[in-house]
Design a protein around this nucleic acid. Structure first.
Length: 461
DNA sequence: CGAGGAGCGA
DNA sequence: ACGTCGCTCCTCGA
């Protein structure tokens, strides 16, 4: 049955999507086409033509990536069904126990998965003051429950319950359904143009959001295993987005920090709290949030929420960041100026995203658009880099007639299923290729790839 | 079946 | 109003 979902296109296997049209950036084509990778890239080409983009490297890149992705999709990933099944039994047991505990405290069998019933419990029965509203009522999300948990233990239990339900539903049951009955492997579908920034997306099942934590989460990741006699090799770009920001902005402090091999979060922490200050783990955590936040176009309010501090304090950190890395501020100013003038932003490799909202009359809409504009070139350039590396690696693997295969991509990470005998050659080849994509700039901005291996995905990470 | 809320990843 | 990009599960009501 599963194969009825597939269409053979140009001798390659690719799955048909549900959509019957192709869109790119914020411009929908006025044509209805069969949703295939080839047609999507074709549509991308039409968008380029319509906007007078010539000699687009992105078009070449996306064309070449189609067959690479199809080979990854065909390969599939090994999976330990027995182990997942055992995890499922234990999680369900824990859920049952938590359920009983919660019912006991509440005094009745409420549906813990219903935000509506939780609202009634907290804000009416228990008389707790609501923290935040959403479209349908008062929010009972993790931030709110963390706050309530300070005074009511029940909130802690509900958070635990939610975490286990997520693992049980999305990962245990979800992955169990995705295991192929014939060979026990799992197959995902990639959408190369899945995100507006140029990132890919993965679905059915999504293998780009497998839990990374400890406990059950780690056990689930341990279920992803190599083929018989093989090992998994995981290669990931180290702090690639901040490095890309350094590269695009040419900020001197940011670049020199990477040149000197400094811990970038520590570098920012020193900037925020003083060169001679002993940086605590708390301070480093703040600096890390600021570093990431800047890439997302953060505001004082948003950072305050993340750090659980007041807006004034958070804004102070954001201001300090831009003061210490002035090149970043200039870069963003010029970027937004260009976005307002041209209506789009683009990556280093020329991938575009149209963002008409930067000139919207509505301040809120404009702010959203500005954050999108600020983030896209960073996230998109990183996406371009790994896509280029994937094409190059796919070619090399076949040229060298290696047995190992590239099987997964998780935004800044590639996973390979390889024989132990090919470990050294893969390590060297993968590192060199992934770092090579910005080779012409390596002189002033080191790109670092971390590689590890193991008998399962958790061990290799 | 779809919207909304929630939570998992980079 | 309030940090980017995704996908999937659950509830609830049409």
């Amino acid at each position: 049955m599963k194969y009825t979902d597939y269409a053979i296109i140009s001798g390659l296997s690719a799955r048909r999507g549900k959509r019957d049209f192709v869109s790119f950036a914020d411009q929908e084509l006025e044509i209805v086409i069969e949703d295939t990778p080839e047609n999507r890239v074709n549509a991308l080409g039409q968008i380029h033509a319509k906007n007078n983009i010539e000699d687009s490297y992105i078009l070449t890149l996306e064309s070449e990536l189609i067959s690479v992705l199809s080979r990854m999709e065909i390969q599939w990933v090994g999976f330990d069904k027995t182990k997942l099944s055992d995890i499922g039994v234990r999680i369900r047991w824990d859920i049952k126990k938590l359920e009983q505990e919660i019912y006991e405290i509440v005094g009745e069998n409420i549906n813990i998965n219903s935000p509506k019933q939780l609202q009634t419990l907290f804000f009416e029965t228990l008389g707790i003051k609501p923290l935040r509203k959403n479209k349908t009522g008062y929010s009972v999300d993790v931030d709110v429950l963390e706050e309530i948990a300070k005074t009511h233990d029940i909130a802690r239990l509900i958070l635990e319950y939610r975490g286990l339900m997520k693992l049980s539903g999305t990962y245990v049951d979800g992955l169990m359904k995705a295991i192929d009955s014939r060979d026990g492997r799992i197959h995902t579908t990639y959408d190369s143009l899945g995100a507006a920034t140029g990132r890919m997306s993965s679905n059915d099942p999504n293998l780009q959001n497998i839990p990374t934590g400890n406990g059950y989460a780690r056990e689930i990741k341990e279920c992803f295993i190599p083929s018989t006699w093989n090992i998994l090799l995981v290669a990931d770009y180290s702090q690639v987005e901040i490095r890309v920001l350094a590269f695009l902005s040419k900020d001197e402090s940011l670049i020199s920090a990477f040149q000197n091999g400094e811990d970038i979060h520590m570098r920012t922490a020193k900037f925020l709290f003083g060169e001679n200050t002993e940086i605590s783990s708390h301070m480093r955590r703040i600096a890390k949030s600021v570093n990431f936040g800047v890439i997302y176009g953060i505001t004082g309010f948003g950072l305050a929420k993340t750090l659980d501090c007041n807006t004034w304090e958070a804004q102070k950190y954001v201001d300090a960041f831009y003061e210490k890395y002035p090149g970043v501020r200039i870069y963003y100013d010029e970027l937004l100026e260009n976005a307002r003038k041209n209506g789009y932003v683009e990556t280093y490799f020329g991938r575009r995203r149209y963002i008409p909202g930067v000139n919207d009359a509505n301040k809120t809409m404009r702010s959203i658009a500005e954050r999108e504009a600020m983030n896209m070139p960073v996230q998109g350039t990183a996406a371009d880099m790994i896509k280029i590396a994937m094409i190059e690696l796919d070619t090399k693997i076949r040229e060298k007639q290696l047995v190992g295969k590239m099987i997964l991509q998780v935004h800044d990470e590639l996973v390979f299923d390889i024989p132990l005998s090919e470990k050294e050659i893969f390590e060297k080849m993968v590192r060199e290729t992934m770092e090579w994509v910005l080779k012409n700039t390596w002189e002033f901005l080191p790109i670092i790839v971390d590689i590890s291996t193991g008998r399962n995905w958790a061990e290799a990470k």
